[in-house]
Structure formats: C-alpha cells, structure tokens
C-alpha cells in the first residue's frame, strides 16, 4: 500500500504540484509526522503501523493548519484515511483550510482497524488502493444505551473521576481550532481543579463536538485516563444525525450549526 502512495507523492513532488507532503515517517525507531519535501526522503514514508495496524495515526490535519497559516499561498499534500478526509471536508466548510491548496492522498483502512474504530466509512472518497473495509456497527454506543440509567451515570462518573485535565482531547482534535475555548473558561468551569467539575467539563466539550466531531478517535487515544471520549462523541453525532440528517465530513455541506 505504501508503495502506491510513494509513487503518487513522488509524482506530485516532482511535478511541482505540491510544495511538500505531510505524512508519517519511520525514523530513529519511531513513527511520527513529517513533511516530505523531496523524493529522496520517501523511502522512510510509512502509513502509521507500529505494533498494530494504524496505531500510530497522528493529527496531520492539525499540522497542516499550522503550515497553511504561515504559507497560505502554497499547496501541500497530506496523507488521509477516511477520518482525516472527513476532517478536511469539515475544515473546508469552517474556512480553516483552503481546498484549492490541499491535495489529499488517500488510503483505505484495513478491516481490523475499521473494526477497532467502529468506523462508518473507513476509506476516503479517492484512495490509492482498491480494497475497502466495510462500515461497522456502533457497538460501544449501543452497549451503553442498553444500560439502566443509574448504571450509565455510575459508568461516566467513574470515567470522569480519572480526568487529569490535560486538555489533550481538545489539543489533539483536528476540529478544535477556536482561539477561545469554552472548556478553558473559568466562567463555565472552575479552572485549577482536579478532577474538573463532573460532568460539566466533559459535557461542555461534548456539546461543542456537535456538528464538528468527524470520529477519528484521536482524543480517545490521547487520553491519559482512557476515558471513552470517542463513544461519547459518537453518541452526539448520532443525535445530530437523527435531528438534522447531518454528519460532519460525510458530505461537502456546511453544518446546520455553522453560522460563518
């Protein structure tokens, strides 16, 4: 799979269509984000497999925003899975990235990764490989839906009790681009307190994921307390889909809540 990407990226770089390609590199025994600017470096390009398939995914869209802010006139390529592509589409609608300045190079996720993520669309619209994994059932959400209300409460409070308030869920999120953030505002949630006010801190963030969350799960992976944040935001996405027939990143349409 990475051979196809390398070929594609080499083309893009040599033809001058892109200034650089934001992907993942294996270097010094680690995998991390890297901006490839010449073909010779492409040997070290990887798709983020470490111990398991795709377990070294990174918020590349977030890196891309940093670069685009500084160099808005240049075009960059970026490695995208299904979730990353949803992120790009949503970021375009929020005017955080310019679609004319981004070239997405897509890869489909293997079924085991799609299953682990319970992903609804584990592949981008266009990708370098043919085999696409099937969409998955949302078991994590339905298993909580099936609990008695008191058990649900106990479960979430047990999880929120562990929060160490690193803000990693927000800091890693490709869709969290606001300069002023509600979860950091002392008016809404007392700052300086561990654990942060329960369940206000997490519900406030969940509400802000309405029309935003593209279900990449990076928040879940970044959480030092292993709080199942992805499940919480999946539920939010389900509710919005039911009410407004809208899932961010699955169409080019703007969020019904987007007033920009």
């Amino acid at each position: 799979m990475s051979e196809n990407i390398k070929t594609k990226v080499a083309e893009l770089l040599s033809s001058g269509q892109i200034k650089g390609f934001l992907g993942l590199r294996s270097n010094e025994g680690h995998i991390g984000p890297y901006l490839f600017t010449n073909e010779a470096e492409l040997d070290s390009l990887v798709v983020g497999d470490w111990k398991n398939r795709g377990d070294s995914r990174y918020p590349l869209n977030k890196c891309l925003i940093n670069i685009a802010c500084k160099y808005p006139e240049d075009t960059f390529g970026v490695l995208v899975r299904g979730c990353d592509e949803r992120g790009l589409k949503a970021l375009y609608t929020w005017n955080q990235l310019n679609p004319n300045k981004v070239v997405a190079v897509g890869i489909a996720c293997p079924q085991e990764l799609a299953d682990a993520c319970e992903c609804l669309k584990p592949y981008p619209d266009e990708c370098v490989d043919d085999e696409k994994a099937k969409a998955c059932e949302q078991k994590a959400v339905s298993s909580i839906d099936a609990l008695a209300i008191a058990d649900r409460f106990a479960l979430w409070i047990r999880e929120f009790t562990k929060c160490v308030k690193c803000y990693g869920c927000r800091d890693v999120c490709p869709m969290c681009f606001c300069k002023e953030c509600s979860v950091g505002s002392d008016d809404l949630i007392h700052t300086g307190q561990l654990p942060p006010e329960m369940p206000i801190f997490h519900l406030t963030r969940a509400v802000h994921m309405i029309g935003r969350c593209i279900d990449c799960g990076l928040c879940n992976e970044a959480c030092p307390a292993d709080i199942p944040l992805r499940t919480l935001y999946k539920k939010v996405a389900d509710i919005i889909d039911k009410e407004f027939q809208y899932r961010p990143g699955y169409t080019d349409a703007k969020s019904p809540l987007n007033v920009l």
Partner: peptide
Amino acid sequence: TTSSHPIIATRIFRAKQ
C-alpha cells in the same frame, strides 16, 4: 500522582480497571 505524574497515574487507572 494525578497532579505531579499524570502519565504514571494512567498505569494506576489501568491496574484498577
């Protein structure tokens, strides 16, 4: 631990789990 060494607290949470 959760204040001063949060990443070690992660292991304690998991042990509890």
